[in-house]
Amino acid sequence: MNALPPVHRTTSAMAVVSLVSGIAAWSVLPLVGAIVAIVCGHLARGEIRRSQGQIEGDGLAVAGLVLGYVQLAFGFIVLLFAIAAIVLGLSIGFGASLFH
């Protein structure tokens, strides 16, 4: 009856920070939250891989990464549209004022 002691697994704190920051990126801190979610998500996944099964939370880290990357992509698209609107608005507004 040699029973192995139960394995005590902990959840990665970085994975939790990544997920919370990813959620914050969509609600309160768009740019900062997205960057923190991405950095912490990658750090957490590396920590989890190196732990050899002692640390869990890969799903939390992946969710944080997805939320962070999608928020950054969304912000970049909005920025491009804003720049295009300004450039087109200025050129249309400036061109129209020449004829009046």
Rank of each mutant, 00 (worst) to 15 (best):
M1W: 02
P5R: 11
P5N: 04
P6F: 03
V7N: 06
H8C: 03
R9G: 00
T11C: 09
S12A: 15
S12E: 14
S12M: 01
A13G: 08
A13I: 13
A13H: 08
M14G: 01
V16L: 06
V16E: 11
V16T: 11
V16Y: 03
V17Q: 14
V17F: 13
V17Y: 05
S18R: 05
S18V: 13
V20N: 08
I23Y: 08
I23L: 14
A24K: 02
A25N: 09
A25G: 15
A25V: 12
W26R: 15
S27I: 02
S27M: 03
V28E: 09
P30Y: 00
P30C: 09
L31Q: 01
L31G: 10
V32L: 10
V32A: 10
V32Y: 07
G33L: 03
A34W: 00
A34K: 10
A34I: 08
A34N: 00
I35M: 12
I35T: 06
V36G: 10
V36M: 04
A37N: 15
I38L: 13
V39L: 14
V39E: 13
V39N: 14
C40E: 15
G41H: 12
H42D: 15
H42I: 15
L43S: 08
L43W: 13
A44L: 09
R45F: 15
G46E: 13
G46I: 10
R49Q: 14
R49G: 10
Q52M: 05
Q52V: 02
Q54M: 06
I55W: 07
I55D: 07
I55L: 13
E56N: 13
E56I: 08
E56K: 07
G57M: 06
G57L: 00
D58E: 11
L60I: 05
L60N: 02
L60Q: 13
L60W: 00
A61R: 12
A61G: 09
A61V: 11
A61S: 02
V62L: 04
V62K: 11
V62N: 07
A63I: 14
G64D: 14
L65W: 09
L65D: 05
V66K: 07
V66F: 03
V66L: 03
L67C: 07
L67W: 01
G68I: 02
G68Y: 01
Y69E: 12
Y69V: 08
Y69T: 07
Y69Q: 10
V70Y: 04
V70S: 07
A73N: 01
F74A: 03
F74M: 15
G75M: 10
G75S: 03
F76S: 12
F76G: 09
I77L: 04
L79G: 00
L79T: 04
L79M: 05
L80N: 05
L80K: 06
L80T: 11
F81I: 03
F81E: 07
F81A: 06
F81Q: 06
A82Y: 00
A82L: 06
A82G: 05
I83E: 02
A84D: 07
A85C: 03
V87C: 03
V87T: 09
L88P: 00
L88N: 06
G89P: 11
G89Q: 06
G89I: 13
L90D: 04
L90G: 15
L90Q: 14
S91P: 01
G93C: 03
F94H: 13
F94K: 06
G95H: 06
A96L: 12
S97L: 15
S97P: 04
F99I: 11
H100W: 10
H100Q: 12
H100G: 12
H100S: 11
